[in-house]
Every structure is written in C-alpha cells, then in structure tokens.
Design a protein around this nucleic acid. Structure first.
Lengths: 212, 212
DNA sequence: AGAAAGTCTTGACGACTGTCCAGACATCGC
DNA sequence: GCGATGTCTGGACAGTCGTCAAGACTTTCT
C-alpha cells in the first residue's frame, strides 16, 4: 500500500469509528433519559429504544449487552458531571463568595438535575450488589471526591485556615447532605433546596480549624 | 351470645390473627434475607419462596401483592433497626465514652450487617422512583434521624457544649459517612470500618460549639 | 363423626425480559 | 452500474416475572 492509500483508509476508518461512537453516545443519551425516569430496576432495552428514534434491535448492534450499555452510560454521565463545579473554584475571590457559590450551586443542581442524580445513587447502590459497574462507580466516586476536595482546599486557603477532615470524609459529608436533600425534594418537600443550601454553608464553615 | 362465648371467639380470633401475623413475619424475614442478598432489582417472589420453607403460591395468601410484601419487610426492618443504638446513649457516662461507643458501634454494624444496610439504601433509593414505599421510607428515615439526634444531644450535654447543626443535618452527615464506608467495605477495602470509626469520631467532635 | 374454615401446593396464564438472527435498506468503493 | 460493507428493522426464541385459581391437605368447630 502507498502512504496515500494508508491515509485514505485511515480517514475512512476514523470517520466510521467516529460515526459509530457518535451513535453509541446518542443511544446512551436515550438510555440515560430512560434510566433517570424509571430507575435501574424497571428500565428495559425496549423502553430505551422507544425513547430513541430506533428499534430495539439496534442496541445489540452498538452494545454487546445490557451491562455494556449501562456501563457506557455511567462513563458518559461522569464526563458531563464532574467538571461542573470547577468554575466556582476558579472564579471565587473570597471564602464567603466560594461558600455561598458552592451552596447555591448544589441547591440549584438538586432542583434542576434531580432525576439524573437519583439515577446516580441508584447505580452506585446497584454496584453494592453487582460487581459489573463497581469499577466505574468507584472511579466516578473518586472523581467527585477530588472535586469536593478542590473546593474545600480553596475555601480553606481563602479563609486562611486549615481543614479538620480529609478528602474522603469531606466528600461523604456533602454527599450525605445532597442525598438527604434529594430525597426530600423528590418527596415534595418544597424547602428542600433552601435547607440544603443552608446546611452546606454551615458544614463547609465547620470544616475549618480556627487556629491553623 | 354470652360473655363466655364472646371471650372464646375473641381468643380464637386473636390466636388466628397471631398465627397469621407470625407467618407473615416469617415470610417477611425470608424476603428480607433474599432482598439483602440480591437487591431489589433482581429479587423475585419465587426466589423469596425458595429461601423459605414454602412454595411461591403462599406469598399471595399472606400478602396482597409484591408491594404489600416489601412494604411489610420495610416496616419489619425498622422495628429491629431503630432501637439498637439507644443502649449506648443510656450507658455512656462521659462524652468521650459516648463518642467512642457510637463510632465503634457504627463501624461494627458496617461489617456485621452490611447486606442489610445496602438493602436499606436500595429501598430508600427505590422510593425516589416509585411512590409505593415512599411513606414508609420517610418514616424510617425520620426514626433514624431522631436516633442520631438523641446521641448528638446527649453527647453535647456530657461535653458541656451546644450543637452547631440541627437534627436533619446531623443525620445527613453520619448517613453519608456510613454509606460511603459501606460502599468501600463491600468493594473489598479492608480498612473501611476503621476509617469510618475515625471519621465518625472526628465529625461528632466537630458538631460541638466551643462556647455555648 | 362430618362440616367448615384455614392453609398450602401445583400448574397455568399473559405479559415482559435479554438476546439473537434473517433480511431489508442505505452507503460505499470500484 | 454492481457487489461489498455498514446500518437498521421486526420478529422469534427461551426464560422469567407477578398473579391467580383449582384442588389437596390440615385444623378447628359442632
């Protein structure tokens, strides 16, 4: 083969791969929509296909099986989710601004993306029973932990104090607050977001050690 | 009817009701065992029956349908779970003893009852999608919140300080710590229980306001 | 004793599941 | 244009699911 032919076939191959990956992403998006609506336990491949513009057979053309599809969904979810809060860290000029910005963003996320986050908790829970998603779930969890830790470190630095707990503990605290808020929000408790914002602010303050 | 006859039929009726309730509890126990093993998504009535000494048909004799069975399971779980930590509150003589006792008990529970607690989180999550269990789940959650709050109040009293957060926030924090620990424990991380004990101790300390 | 009520088993039903496949349709290089 | 390749459809498959009902067995009442 000539180099030209090589490049040509490469280009074609890449375009096909890209198209393949693009359709995978498209189907994964439909799957995520369905999953966040129905939950893991009651989401079927036919239901996912019905929420897309394709028939149910195509799912096995782009994904090996159901586990492969959901794993891809989880990874796709991660890519969108993790980097969302770094903007706050970058733009905050004072501890108080960071504190309120973080609390407000969490509260807004609670309302805006409630279905997506209940799905995340659903899949994370599923990984306690099934080993299939465990690796991906743990990886996402660590990403979120790092994200929270960046905020905590920046907050302590702006406040001129040090932190009383480590990354894992800090993440667990805010995750607990968010999950409890999500539970109440989805149960129809209207002040769930406001209470979350307040408690997040309090707890973030409480993480500081007065004398560093 | 005579009073004697009344009493007799009452006694009979009560005995039948008791036997009925007893068998319901027995089947619910089998269901809980199965659910904690497989998770909500993959637990079928036939599997539950196979984990008992009866056939699958009997479940519809004692329970209206699957939702009725699982609701009964959730309630039964609550009765056993909630009162477990009150002993610590009653027997602790110092803040330090209460602190270490609480942290140690949480860590021991993490190891001993891991399957049961992943089921609890599974069902609580399920209530974010399905309204069926929502009322019972919220009731149990409030019970747990009150339990945590009793410990926190007693701890503050023994320490001669006041608390920096309210009941809902306090519960969310420890629930987050426990859930994160459970995730790591079930993923095979051996030091999950130890880390939970340490972080619970730290956070409990952090709840106190130095100057009341 | 026999009748009645309670308890449990077994088998069946329709619906739904994940998976696979034969073939239709579209797109491509030649 | 034609064959080859990639893409997609729709149906079929073997299971499993929740539910129900007919009947057998057991216990209780009279």
């Amino acid at each position: 083969m000539t180099q030209v032919a090589d490049k040509a076939s490469d280009r074609i191959a890449r375009r096909q791969v890209d198209k393949f990956a693009e359709r995978r992403a498209q189907l994964a998006a439909s799957a995520l929509r369905t999953l966040s609506e129905l939950g893991y336990a009651r989401t079927s491949l036919r239901e996912i296909a019905q929420n897309s513009e394709f028939s149910h057979g195509v799912l096995h053309y782009y994904f090996r099986d159901k586990v492969d599809l959901i794993t891809h969904c989880v990874r796709q979810y991660k890519a969108e989710c993790v980097t969302r809060y770094d903007q706050i860290v970058a733009t905050a000029d004072s501890a108080e601004e960071l504190r309120q910005g973080f609390a407000a963003t969490l509260a807004r996320t609670l309302v805006d993306d409630a279905p997506m986050h209940r799905l995340w908790y659903d899949l994370r829970n599923q990984s306690m029973f099934e080993e299939s998603f465990r690796a991906d779930v743990l990886e996402i969890d660590q990403s979120l932990e790092r994200m929270i830790w960046r905020i905590a470190v920046q907050f302590a630095e702006l406040a001129g104090a040090s932190l009383a707990v480590g990354p894992a503990t800090a993440y667990a605290l805010f995750d607990g607050l968010f999950q409890q808020g999500l539970l109440r929000h989805l149960a129809g408790q209207d002040d769930a977001a406001d209470e979350l914002r307040a408690s997040v602010g309090d707890v973030l303050d409480g993480l500081l050690v007065r004398r560093p």
